[in-house]
Structures are given as structure tokens and as C-alpha cells.
Amino acid sequence: MTDAVSDRQPRAGLPVSTHGLVHIYHAEGHDVAALSGVDLEVRAGEFIGLLGPSGAGKSTLLSLLGGLFRPSAGKIRVGPHELSTISPKELDDLRSREVALMLQGATRNLLPYYSARQNVAFAQTVARRGGKDLPAPTEVLEQVGLADAEVDRPLSTLTPGHLQLAAIAATVATRPGVLLADEPTSQLDHDARDQVLERIGWINRTYGTTVILVTHDPEVAAALPRTVTIRDGRVGGEGRSGEEYSVVTADGFLPLPSQVRDELPPGTLVRFHRDPEDDHYTLLPEDDRR
């Protein structure tokens, strides 16, 4: 494995933002709101993690960012592109050059009959055809940490960790501006998990690629500079350098941290008190007559 960067000009990442993002799944007989107004700003080159319980809407948000489907309402902007109104052709073009989505499960990102090297080459085909200057597949694979011996072997003979590295390589083969990764460390042992996380971080640092990563793993989340917690289809909080924050939404809502919600059940009346001296806000339940 080497951290040597190609002499090609590294590309800067793309900013990603959502405003009032709503997505409703139409199931048999009833509708399910997966996202209920997500506002999110991700700066170019930022590395953030999406956290939240199962069913909170993380993967839906990631899929919307990847253009897998259109939102029911709201706006999604990736760099200069507005995904909610983008044409299929532009979307294909965006996927071939700018936005890379890494699905959960390494093999879902790979063509099973190709080797790792062939998969990377396959991923680069359209971008190369469009004139994009890309590193050789072996170079990409080397950068993600796959040894030469592994790159031409059938995928079925690779370990889960190596498969995940191959999947990363195929995903970032086009040097995208945004890398969207859905639980890239699930089903991996600690060493493999750390290796995968380290390589994604390296890509982020080296190429400035904006990385949005969905994870359930608290250890992974702790290692990320910024985390966004999705809860009940909204942004429920943010973590920055290990510190947990609640985020005021565009319509003025303030989701409570989970430990607070246990103490303040739904229906509790609260009021905010601002201490002008130390510039603090105090949350006072109705029966607290301090």
C-alpha cells in the first residue's frame, strides 16, 4: 500500500446541500414518509457520517443524494447540479464523473465475473470516453490497498475486507467529487473496518473528495470529524469533534437529544430562558418554577 499521490491534478470535492427534503415511499395501501424535511449543508471536501437508528432515513437520504430516485419535495444540490430537476442524461453524466455511490455490501458494487482490476476499468470507461484523465486501474487499486496479487483474482476468492477495498476502488475509480458510502464497514472485522475507513479518509484528504458515509458503528462515527444524526426523517443532531449538538431546523424546530427526550416525554410544556449574563439558553419544563 502506498500513499503516493498521482501527479495528476487532484480534484476538489463538491459541496452538497439539501433544503426541506421530503421523501415518501408509496407502499401497498399506505404511504410512509422516510424524510420529513431534511436540511443539510456539506462543504466541499468535508467528510461526514450519517448516523441514526434503523428506518430513520439515512439510506434514503444517501440514495437521494446519489440520484437513485427523486425526492417528493425539497431540493438537493450537488455542486452546481440540482438533482431534483436534473435530466436522466445529466444524471448519468454526473454519476460517470462527479458522484459515486457505494452500496451496502461490497459485491453489490462489483460485476461478479470481472476481477478487481476489470471492475475498476469498467467503472472508468464512460469517464475516459468523455476525456477525463484518470489513473490506471492498478494504480487505483494500489491506492486503496489491494496488492497486485489480488487485482486479477476472481472476486469469489477475495476476503470480505479485500472485496470492500475493491468496491471502494471501483467506486472512486473516476475520482468523483462526492463519495456516498452506505455502511462501507458493515460485516467487516475490526482490522478490515479500520483499513477501509482509513482508505476512505485518505481519499478524502488526498483528493478533496467530499465523503458522506452512513454508519451504525459508534466507533466509526467517533472517528469522523462531523456526524449528522437522522431521526424520524429529520436532522436530529450533529456531532463535531466528539461534541453532540442539536440542530435548529429551518422552520425553527429543535430536536431534543435522546437522553433529554427520556426526561421530557411528548406533550411536556417547556420554555426557553436566556441568561443575558453568560449568554446561555435554559430549557425550563412547565412545572419547574425556578
Binding site: 436522466p88 455511490l101 453489490r108 460485476l111 464512460v126 473516476t174
Partner: peptide, 16 residues
């Protein structure tokens, strides 16, 4: 199906 999805995700579109 997954292979078709991979092709689409790699920017090849339906024609690809």
C-alpha cells in the same frame, strides 16, 4: 439486476 444497477451507477445509463 445488480450488474445492471452497477452499470447505471457507473454512469452508463440505460443504454449502457
Amino acid at each position: 439486476r445488480p450488474e445492471v444497477a452497477v452499470a447505471v451507477l457507473r454512469g452508463r445509463g440505460r443504454s449502457g
